[in-house]
Design a protein around this nucleic acid. Sequence first.
DNA 1: ACGATGACCCAAG
DNA 2: TCTTGGGCCATCG
Length: 107
Amino acid sequence: MEEELHEQVREIVKSIPAGRVATYGDVADLAKAPSPRMVGQVLNGDGHDLPWHRVLRANGTCAPHIAEEQLQRLRAEGVIDDGGKVDLRKYRWEEAVKDEDGPPSLF
DNA sequence: ACGATGACCCAAG
DNA sequence: TCTTGGGCCATCG
């Protein structure tokens, strides 16, 4: 049961709905991971059964080697990418949506 | 025990 | 907006 963290990370990623994306930092926080690095480490080891393509970096970009697959899969889910970058403010998955739809005439 | 590596993040220039 | 540097935690040789 020392693998609870390992399990948690998988659960979080699996909980991401299609057409939505989350950042490593968010998953790490939700999974109580000590650092976002561990999320990538887990995905690298046991992410074969997880929608890892729904996990992006904090700036909305994806890892170098998987970028192709990532963008392609995201597009299939309905996520539109822009020059290899995804609009987190639009597709960022938030289990407790705080406030995303800010004022149209102010930022 | 130690150094290097990795699907990362953030601040500063 | 992009690049650089430092910090981060766990695994491997």
